[in-house]
Write a protein that binds this DNA or RNA. Structure first.
Length: 592
DNA sequence: GCCGTTTTCGGCCCGACTGTTTTCAGTCG
């Protein structure tokens, strides 16, 4: 069977999400719906293609996956072998697609969406808007004037703002708002929670937790004061809802912000609850229930006695459930609870473990600063080394270096290092290149020149539209060249702007393992490439990774935090990361 | 539809807020 004709995991997951949506509007069993959603999420989080698993281990192999049982496994098999699935086709056949658009409107759930369709025949956003404009929805039970206005507002909001935001945008807006809240006398502490704290690559909204100060007896008045300040924050364009402990606003750029206010006694359980993910919390609470406990944002309680057994500190919540502390980046229900139970959680990589950066650019190609300036910037960060890796000749748009210019740079860096040495500095600038992998898999610099460098980073910057098998072979050829140390931004994606190119990541990772080549985590917030799922697979296969910034200016070295937290989401430990090695160890890995 | 240190059958997280409701259903996170 030809690989390129098979559905990939993302397509299959999307189908099961749609199945869940349709069943929900149809009023199906909510646990059956949940199973489809859980299964779809599990498939999205899978590093290995379902087609590979099916080929190697058949349907029983699929059933072994968490969240996948007999029902979903058989549908996956049908989708992969025939390209469609009778059950799915039947559901799609009796559901106008516009209904699913209505379901996605803020404030619209399956019940209301279903009622609109069954009672009024409304099956598209356009029909809904037209009916709401003339008061045509109020004939339905449960639909009043306010509901109608809310629907019109949701449609307007959907039209102007689409989807999720990159995490860097979220962090910027969150920082300002948190500063504003922290300055309030009623607030003793502010924390970012939700997907921001878990460092997801994009976020749906900003979740902020504020701990109120002052006596318990006045907590309600204090909360109200905080909420009043929150909804009048200068950047707020709309108040979605406002209560004592929870309020939601929209900022002018469409970003939604949820604020929760609690007392300091509840801090740990509140932070745990609002950090999520939802799937993690559901799994945590199911475990608690089996242990005779109940977990909410107000603490961990013994169900029988009603006594509170934990809640002030986040670690206590996990401890009460017999679990070691789970880092926020791991809380996605991807096996972290099981690992915490068995004491085999990873010792995650952290900012203090990074000793150098292995990918950056200077004015020689498309950077903004000289190699001296770049070196000084990372010395200020306490790094021990930095690799200068300007582009190669073929990347004309970035003023890529030909052999002659690279050779000249090599000599300059040699003398720069010599100067440092004489000044008694142990810092070392590494001579490198970000060499293009050309369409045929060959490298854009001659072999002997690459051999003179300390480090070779190879990347694809052209021909993104190759089919999967060709692209995979192209990258593997570079890995097998014996000249390459790191594959940079291995899927080429730009989050929200350019899809990753088609590539068999498992095959690439296996080749990287075999040839001692590391895979990059590119720290640009728009890239984060490899992503968390691929990194987890890399770790399982024993592939080393390099967490690099690809900095084009001195201030971009700070982006390393995005790479580090993405690596943490991929369960990466210091031992997996080549730029956590001291210089000697790194040079040994590089074969120099 | 999935799952198992209470279970292969009988469960499946927990609470806040809103609107249209006289006591709660629907939605959200």
């Amino acid at each position: 069977m030809d690989d390129k004709d098979l559905m990939d995991n993302r397509q299959i997951a999307a189908i099961f999400h749609t199945v869940a949506d349709i069943l929900e509007v149809g009023g199906d069993n909510k646990y059956r719906i949940r199973s489809y959603r859980t299964g779809a999420d599990a498939i999205e989080d899978l590093g290995v293609e379902l087609s590979t698993i099916l080929e190697e281990s058949g349907v029983p192999g699929l059933i072994e996956l968490p969240g996948i049982g007999k029902g979903i496994a058989e549908k996956v098999e049908e989708l992969l072998t025939t390209g469609s699935c009778a059950f799915v086709e039947e559901l799609l056949g009796r559901t106008p697609p516009g209904i699913l658009d209505i379901l996605r409107l803020s404030g619209m759930g399956p019940k209301k969406t279903g009622a609109l369709y069954r009672e009024l025949g409304i099956d598209s956003i356009e029909a809904l808007e037209a009916a709401a404009r003339v008061g045509g929805l109020q004939t339905l039970a449960g639909f009043g004037e306010k509901t109608e206005q809310k629907i019109l507002k949701a449609i307007k909001s959907m039209k102007s703002f689409a989807g999720r935001h990159r995490i860097s945008i979220g962090r910027k807006y969150a920082a300002r708002l948190m500063q504003y809240l922290q300055a309030l006398p009623e607030v003793s502490r502010v924390e970012a929670a939700g997907s921001l704290r878990r460092w997801r690559e994009n976020i749906g909204d900003i979740d902020i937790l504020a701990i109120s100060s002052g006596p318990e007896s006045e907590s309600e008045a204090i909360s109200e004061a905080i909420m009043a300040a929150f909804v009048t924050y200068p950047g707020v364009s709309d108040v979605v809802m406002k209560g004592h402990t929870r309020s939601t606003v929209l900022l002018e750029n469409g970003l939604q912000v949820d604020l929760r206010v609690l007392g300091s006694d509840d801090f740990g359980s509140a932070l745990q609850h609002f950090t999520g993910s939802k799937a993690h919390n559901v799994a945590i609470r199911e475990r608690a229930k089996r242990l005779g406990l109940k977990v909410s944002e107000y603490g961990v309680f013994n169900i029988k006695s009603g006594k509170r057994v934990a809640g002030a500190a986040e670690a206590d919540v996990y401890e009460a459930l017999g679990l070691s502390f789970i880092a926020p980046e791991l809380r996605e229900d991807r096996g972290e609870i099981e690992a915490a139970k068995e004491g085999r959680l990873p010792e995650l990589i952290g900012p203090g473990d990074i000793r150098g950066d292995l990918h950056c650019h200077t004015v020689a190609s498309d950077g903004a600063h000289t190699y001296e300036q770049m070196a000084e910037a990372v010395m200020a960060l306490g790094y021990e080394y930095l690799a200068i890796t300007d582009h190669s000749r073929s990347l004309g748009i970035a003023h890529g270096l030909d052999s002659e210019r690279l050779l000249k740079q090599v000599e300059e860096i040699d003398s720069y290092n010599e100067k440092l040495r004489k000044r008694g500095k142990s810092f070392r600038l590494l001579k490198g290149s970000e060499v293009d992998i050309l369409s045929d898999g060959s490298l854009d610099h001659p072999d002997e020149l690459l051999g003179r460098l300390d480090i070779v980073v190879a990347a694809i910057h052209s021909g993104f539209n190759m089919e999967k098998a060709g692209m995979t072979a192209r990258v593997i050829k570079a890995i097998e060249s014996g000249r390459v140390n790191i594959i940079a931004h291995p899927t080429g994606r730009l989050i929200g702007m350019r899809e990753p190119f088609a590539i068999d990541m498992e095959a690439v990772l296996k080749a990287a393992k075999e040839h001692g080549v590391a895979m990059e985590v590119n720290s640009y917030p728009e890239r984060l490439d490899l992503n968390d799922v691929h990194l987890r697979l890399a770790k399982e296969l024993g592939v080393k990774v390099a967490i690099s910034t690809d900095a084009h200016a001195t201030d971009q070295f700070a982006n390393i935090e995005y790479g580090i937290h993405t690596a943490r989401r991929g369960w990466i430990e210091p031992v997996d990361v080549i730029n956590s090695l001291p210089l000697e160890g790194l040079l040994e890995f590089l074969g120099r």
